[in-house]
Design a protein around this nucleic acid. Structure first.
Length: 254
DNA sequence: ATGGCTACGATCCGTAGA
């Protein structure tokens, strides 16, 4: 099984790239973030024509998440049950026996801001939710844009980023609280090139300078980690004209 | 020099992202 996550930054703009990437990569399931469309505008016909089913939870302008899959998604749940949130950031579905949780974690804007406080509250609710999912499913993949670079090696310039949003200690502690549940960062189960990132700023020639962050991750339960045979970042779509600022992350399972 | 891009929904600038 091949599972991917990709923050497409507008599915409307990125649809041709998404369809080309699906055909080239042939994933069994894909978590998408930042759709930026209401459900009525979701390009379901094009996705289905490409051979995928889709579950989605969208909104106008901001956020929005989807799970595409070759086989039918079951037990679809949108949002974090019990956590009131207007933002469409979370979608879960069971695909081929794997509980797939698609995540678009809050950005946080700036340390100390209202959005930062929301980000930390949101992560606490996510931890409780994933704890429940792990209790009821042995095969869990929580894949998405976490908006946290967990370690300094996930940051192109740790000095420049020190203390900033995405790397601040409370955010990293919130991320590690997920790992403390037993989840594993699939990317770090394997030898990886140095300076591997999944997001690069559109400005300042970020991609060309490899000035990026590794903020997109696929966290897996112990049972799924045993089956994990690889995890890579696919930089090819980031090189196209009019790319998303994020690259897809792809994990494979036996 | 602290911005520099992109998407969106509103107009010809503001909000948000990371």
């Amino acid at each position: 099984m091949k599972l991917a996550t990709w923050n497409v930054n507008s599915i409307k703009v990125r649809l041709p790239q998404l369809l080309g990437w699906l055909a080239a990569t042939q994933p069994d399931a894909v978590c998408l973030q930042e759709l930026k469309v209401e459900d009525a505008e979701f390009p379901l016909a094009e996705i289905e024509a490409a051979g995928y089913r889709a579950a989605y939870s969208g909104q106008k302008t901001y956020n929005g998440v989807a799970i595409l899959s070759r086989s039918a998604p079951a037990d679809v749940v949108a949002g974090i049950p019990g956590f009131e949130d207007e933002h469409k950031r979370v979608l879960a579905a069971t695909v081929d026996g794997v509980r797939v949780v698609c995540l678009y974690c809050p950005n946080g804007q700036a340390v100390g801001s209202e959005k930062y406080a929301y980000k930390l509250r949101w992560f606490a609710a996510l931890r409780d939710y994933l704890s429940r999912e792990l209790a009821s499913h042995s095969q869990v993949a929580a894949a998405g844009d976490y908006n946290v670079a967990p370690e300094d090696r996930d940051v192109h310039d740790p000095k420049q980023w020190e203390g900033q949003v995405h790397v601040s200690e409370p955010e990293r502690a919130a991320w590690r609280a997920l790992v403390a549940l037993g989840l594993k960062d699939s990317f770090r189960l394997f030898e990886q090139p140095e300076k591997s990132f999944s997001w690069w700023d559109y400005r300042m020639l970020g991609f060309r300078r490899n000035a990026g962050l590794r903020i997109d991750q696929i966290l897996v339960s112990p049972g799924l980690a045993e089956r994990c045979s690889g995890c890579t970042i696919d930089k090819a779509p980031r090189k196209l004209e009019r790319p998303s600022d994020h690259a897809p992350v792809v994990a494979t399972f036996s």
